[in-house]
Amino acid sequence: MQKMFMLTVFCLLVMSCGTMSQAPDPTYYLFDAEPRVQKQKTTTTRIKLEQIKLADYLSTNQLVMRDGGQVLIKANYHSWADSLDDAIGRALLSDLNTLNENSEFVSRCNSCDSISVTIEHFYPGADGKLLLSGFFEISSKNTENTLSRFKLVDDLSIDGYANAVKQMREQVGALAIQINQKL
């Protein structure tokens, strides 16, 4: 009798496990999925791009979106394949080197002019808007430092994080254009 009871419980457990729902697979996104080959520059003017500073809520590998009002949602199954600040830095270096022929933008340099970029807001919204805002500062030895604020808002063309990431990369390209104009 007792053996029969134990067998019954075991069967129920196995059956309950069989009814558990399948969790979605996590998705990883590459921010700079399309790297460019940089031309060899002959200029001696070098400009250092400092480490990109992100707001704390962006310093995570989870993608975030604004769900109306002040609500921010972190995705559970959509993550960045690389740390976002490094990825944005690489993207900016690539864009700036493409845009500016007279200077070489590098991540490490001693006693060079430098650009520091701070990103305060960078997320898609439930309302179909993509927001990138913050400020960048150009430090030069010969001239005074210039601080410029930027705010880029785009409409999301397609639903989903995949498209949002693609458009976020394009927004960083637009930011590179703004920085290049200030140089």
Partner: peptide, 18 residues
């Protein structure tokens, strides 16, 4: 033990203007 409701993440929506 029993698993939970596996809800997928809410994703951003395309702009309605378009």
């Amino acid at each position: 033990v029993f698993g939970g409701p596996a809800e997928s993440d809410k994703q951003p929506q395309a702009s309605k203007k378009e």
